[in-house]
Simulated assay, not measured.
Amino acid sequence: MRKLTAAFLAAGAVFAAAPALAADMPFYPPVIDVPDVDYGVSGSFYLRGSAAGNALWSKEAYAWDCTACGATQITVPVTAWGYGYSVGAGFGYETGTGLRFDATVDLVNNSGLTVTHPASSGWRAGDYKVNLRSTIALANAYYDFSFGGNYGYGAAGGAFGYVGAGVGAAFNDISVSGPVGGPTVPSGQNTSLAAAGMVGVGYDFGTIVADVGYRGLYINKITNSAAPPDTAWTDNNWLHEVRGTVRYRFN
């Protein structure tokens, strides 16, 4: 009986002391999982390289006709496209919001733009073919937009499309080959306004971004800059390109 009474008394003491013991124990708050904050895509610098096939067209060409040793300007139709290629490189920055900017330099080769000249006192009738080498320097701006996912711009990864525009200068070097027996047209150089519009699609792999697209390149004037009656030139020239480009991000 004494043992049973002692057991009850001990149990009562434990229950009486429990609140005080609980108050002395440290409190650990429940663990809450906080999702990572998505800060979006940060800006980054990049290098780019491009290669393209091109086709050159101009509506008409101009020359001086030596009539009785007096130079008279004449208009001559362009009858065939010129074809060629280009390679280029550039450096740029993408903001992470879809906008990006770069400066590019392209080396253009194009041959075969054909001017069909009528018979005149200064020219032999026949086809005159223009061979163009040009260095194109442009400052460009683009907007990338995503084709899917939860992102609003291509720089976030995956497939994307883009539109862009550029402005700069073309440094042209031309030579002209004419019909057998015709006059020799002097080679020459000129500098002209250049502008471009771009559209295309690509895929963002992370560090590497690849795209393929169209660039319409406007060259205001191509001429050999010779004195009359040896001057030959074309205005409002369009170089149509299909280009592939690879970009490498630094960060």
Rank of each mutant, 00 (worst) to 15 (best):
R2T: 14
R2W: 11
K3P: 07
A6E: 14
A7N: 02
A10M: 12
A11E: 10
A13R: 09
V14A: 15
F15D: 05
A18E: 12
A23K: 13
A23H: 08
D24N: 07
M25W: 06
P26N: 13
F27M: 07
Y28Q: 10
P30V: 08
P35W: 05
D36T: 12
D36R: 14
D38L: 11
Y39T: 14
Y39M: 13
G40C: 13
G40E: 11
S42N: 15
F45K: 11
L47F: 13
N54H: 05
L56I: 10
W57T: 08
W57I: 06
S58K: 01
E60Q: 15
A61N: 03
A61Q: 02
A63P: 01
A63E: 06
W64D: 13
W64F: 15
W64H: 14
D65A: 07
A68E: 10
A68P: 00
G70C: 04
A71F: 12
A71N: 15
T72K: 04
T72E: 06
Q73S: 14
I74F: 06
V78M: 07
A80H: 08
A80K: 13
G82I: 07
G84P: 04
G84W: 05
S86N: 12
G88S: 10
G90A: 02
G90D: 05
Y93C: 09
T95E: 12
G98I: 11
R100E: 01
T104A: 09
T104G: 03
V108Q: 00
V108M: 02
N109V: 03
N109M: 05
N109S: 12
N110I: 01
N110F: 03
G112V: 03
V115G: 01
A119D: 06
A119M: 00
A119C: 04
G122Q: 05
G122P: 04
W123Y: 14
R124K: 10
R124T: 07
A125T: 03
G126Y: 03
D127N: 09
Y128M: 00
V130L: 14
R133V: 04
R133W: 14
S134G: 02
L138P: 07
A139E: 04
G148I: 12
G148W: 06
Y151A: 08
G152Q: 11
G152H: 11
G154Q: 04
G154H: 09
A156F: 09
G158D: 07
F160S: 05
V163Q: 01
G164C: 06
A169E: 02
A169L: 02
V176Y: 01
V176D: 01
S177H: 04
G178K: 01
V180K: 06
G182R: 00
G182L: 04
T184F: 03
V185C: 02
P186A: 09
N190H: 00
N190K: 10
S192R: 05
L193Q: 00
L193E: 05
A195M: 08
A196M: 10
M198I: 10
D204Q: 09
D211Q: 08
Y214F: 12
L217M: 11
L217V: 09
Y218L: 01
Y218P: 00
S225L: 08
A226K: 11
A227I: 14
A227G: 05
P228Y: 07
P228R: 09
T231I: 06
T231L: 14
A232F: 11
W233F: 15
T234W: 07
D235K: 10
L239P: 08
H240K: 10
V242S: 04
G244N: 03
R247N: 11
Y248V: 15
R249F: 12
R249L: 12
